[in-house]
């Protein structure tokens, strides 16, 4: 199968003085899909996006953006992309409407009808000076400018930072529409629900290195599900099965986590124990994420298969 990548980053490195911000990062965004980009604070998400925008120059590795070089072909590529930063700074003396117009004109695809449409959806007053906008409203200015553009690729760096829940809903719709229009999106976020809802693929990074990537389904498949059962017999036998962890028995109720590869064996064993009720929950994205960073991360590190 051949896929075209809107973003294709391999082995990217970037230092700031002695800090290694990126240390061999890999990231792919297939054309026409929404890619989630997760990582704790300071892991290098914004740095990656800034390199892709040609604002920073990579020290090493390869990066291809819409078939071009993000540093060399910056100006041409920028006609085809839009960017929303996590902390939007605007000209304090200009109104939101003026700012959106200016950004659209810079890209060369200003379409006032589309702008008006998104202004209405995000409920933003374009006649106010940027100085008097709240943080959420400043964010909306950049979001309207990005969604109203005809850009093929959207870079959204923690874009819902400061939006109220209602506006997060509007944002979710807009991303889904962008995807339906065939645009590609790279969405960096700290909100798991948002990423689970919107993204086709997820890349999780840590300390400037990719630690997980793939479709959400694949990632889940590779990981442990949580199983809760009500049993007639003593569950102690389960503990002996390779691939079963965290077993807790509480009267008739038993819960444990299980590696997906061990599932057939576990089901056979369970059948013998007289199950009356069984619920299996796939790992949430949050659990996937916390496996790398949570309190268990250090202890589990050696178990996690490293690429």
């Amino acid at each position: 199968m051949t896929t075209t990548f809107a973003v294709d980053v391999r082995g990217l490195t970037k230092r700031f003085g002695t800090t290694r911000a990126l240390d061999g990062l890999n990231l792919q965004v297939e054309a026409g899909t929404v890619a989630g980009f997760l990582g704790p604070n300071g892991s290098g998400k914004s740095t990656t996006i800034r390199i892709l925008l040609g604002l920073l120059r990579a020290d090493g590795g390869e990066a291809t953006l819409l078939g071009g070089d993000p540093w060399r072909d910056a100006v041409q590529l920028h006609r085809r992309i839009a960017y929303v930063a996590g902390d939007v700074t605007l000209w304090p003396n200009l109104t939101g409407g003026q700012t959106i117009d200016i950004l659209g004109s810079l890209r060369g695809d200003l379409d006032r009808d589309r702008v008006d449409d998104f202004l209405a959806r995000f409920d933003l007053d374009p006649t106010k000076k940027a100085r008097s906008y709240s943080k959420g409203n400043r964010q909306k200015v950049a979001l309207v400018a990005a969604f109203a553009s005809r850009a093929e690729l959207l870079f959204l760096d923690e874009p819902t930072n400061g939006l109220d829940p209602l506006m997060e809903g509007v944002f979710t719709e807009c991303v889904a529409e962008a995807r339906a229009e065939g645009r590609s999106v790279l969405l960096s976020s700290h909100i798991f629900a948002e990423v689970e809802k919107l993204c086709d693929t997820v890349t999780i990074i840590r300390d400037g290195r990719t630690v997980e990537s793939g479709t959400l389904k694949d990632l889940r498949h590779l990981k442990r599900s949580t199983v809760t059962v009500t049993l007639d017999s003593d569950p102690a036998a389960l503990e002996a099965i390779d691939g079963v962890h965290d077993l807790i028995a509480d009267g008739g109720h038993t819960s444990f986590t299980v590696d997906s590869v061990a599932l057939p064996r576990v089901l056979t064993a369970l059948a013998a124990l007289g199950p009356r009720d069984l619920v299996s929950t796939p790992p949430s994205l949050e659990e996937l994420f916390l496996r790398h960073y949570g309190v268990h991360a250090a202890a589990d590190d050696h178990e996690v298969a490293r690429p």
């Binding site: 800034r50 925008l53 040609g54 604002l55 910056a74 100006v75 041409q76 920028h78 006609r79 992309i81 960017y83 930063a85 902390d87 939007v88 700074t89 605007l90 000209w91 950004l103 810079l106 890209r107 060369g108 950049a142 870079f155």
Partner: peptide
């Protein structure tokens, strides 16, 4: 210094 080049330099202008 104010961070406003972020949106401008990522636009189609050298």
């Amino acid at each position: 210094a104010a961070g406003r080049t972020e949106i401008q330099w990522s636009s189609a202008i050298s």
